[in-house]
Simulated assay, not measured.
Amino acid sequence: MSKVFFLTFVCCIGAQNIRQPTSLQTTTLGDNVTIECYLPKTDFNIMVWYKQVFETTLQPISRCYNYLNIAKFFDGYNDGRFTVKVCKGIFHLNIFLTKNEDIATYFCGVITFGELKFGPGTFLMLQEEHTSTTVLQEQIVDEVNLGDNVTLMCRVNKVHEDCSRGHNAYWIRKGSEEYNSSIIYTDGDMEEHCEESSGDGPTTQSCIYSLTKRNLHIADAGTYYCAVSTCNKIMFGNGTTLEFKPQHDSNLTTALLITLVTSNIISLIIMISLVALQEALTYTSVSFTNKPRPSKGSEQQSISKHNEVYSKTKSY
């Protein structure tokens, strides 16, 4: 299974101008939450919030005309649980008494000359206690290097429940601030294997979802959460962290060591030369200072002797 949601591409347009600092926001079901959005300094006419629940289409939440600070909320979001904070450069979305249906990706956007631009998005993950279904993730034990392949494992244990829909699994990555563009995605080789067991108790079902990532890049690092959608609920695993073994370049290390030693030697030579020059200048100064200056009487005596010699010479 290889799939990249359409919005994953669309949301990145203008993302460098609209900042949503938190790519994955986690809180407890029923709490209040604020999803932050910082707007660009360029002129725009309208500010908007949109929501996407996994594979569904975009749903408009709110629209606000710039400089008016009066927000309009669309059907389904005008029950008072949603508000916005509007001030210069800020368009935050507040959600009160969060529900399971609020689990989604929230995109902040602006409209400029009829063009809609989105920020990178914030996925809201709500945790709650589950008794009938558990989602477990296995941690990566082996060292992982760039260019390797890795398989992420997610096990779903579920007690049979009567509901019209089955369950689907998704993977959500919380990356670094530099690499946080893909929030909800299933790109990669994803496989599903399920087994049912029944005994004296209720029927249980165990499914294993595996996601294989190939030719790993530095942008693949982060914490991967398995999200399972079943019976109108969404449950999350405990997360699997993917990090790379530090790369050491021996040639680069040797070159840096040689450069460091050479610079230290040159610095030492310059220091010795400066000290020697300072000593030489100090010696010369002392020599000139200590040389005796002839007294005024000595100068007169020398002039007299010179005149006497000159007189004798003239007489001849």
Rank of each mutant, 00 (worst) to 15 (best):
Y179L: 01
N180I: 00
N180A: 06
N180E: 03
S181R: 09
S182F: 14
S182H: 08
S182A: 13
I183V: 13
I183G: 05
I184R: 07
I184A: 09
Y185Q: 15
D187M: 07
D187S: 11
G188I: 03
D189Y: 10
D189G: 07
D189E: 14
M190L: 14
M190F: 04
E191R: 09
H193K: 15
H193E: 15
E195H: 11
E195V: 14
E196Q: 14
E196I: 10
S197Y: 05
S197F: 06
S197V: 12
G199P: 00
G199Y: 00
D200G: 15
D200Y: 08
D200R: 10
G201W: 01
G201R: 09
P202W: 03
P202G: 08
P202I: 03
T203E: 14
T203S: 14
T204L: 01
Q205A: 11
S206C: 09
S206G: 06
S206W: 01
C207L: 09
C207I: 05
I208H: 10
Y209H: 12
Y209C: 02
Y209Q: 07
S210E: 10
T212Y: 03
T212K: 10
T212W: 02
R214N: 09
R214W: 00
N215H: 07
N215F: 00
N215Y: 00
N215V: 00
L216C: 06
L216Y: 01
L216D: 04
H217Y: 02
H217E: 15
I218R: 11
A219K: 06
A219D: 12
D220L: 08
A221M: 04
G222T: 02
T223K: 13
T223R: 10
Y224S: 10
Y224L: 06
Y225Q: 04
C226H: 06
C226S: 07
A227R: 04
V228E: 03
V228N: 05
S229F: 00
T230W: 01
T230H: 14
T230C: 04
C231Y: 01
C231W: 02
C231G: 05
N232W: 08
N232Q: 13
K233L: 10
K233A: 08
I234M: 13
I234E: 07
M235Q: 04
M235P: 00
M235L: 15
M235V: 13
F236I: 04
F236P: 00
G237L: 09
N238E: 14
T240Y: 02
T241E: 09
L242E: 05
L242A: 05
F244V: 04
K245H: 13
K245S: 14
P246Q: 12
P246F: 07
P246M: 06
P246L: 10
Q247P: 00
Q247E: 15
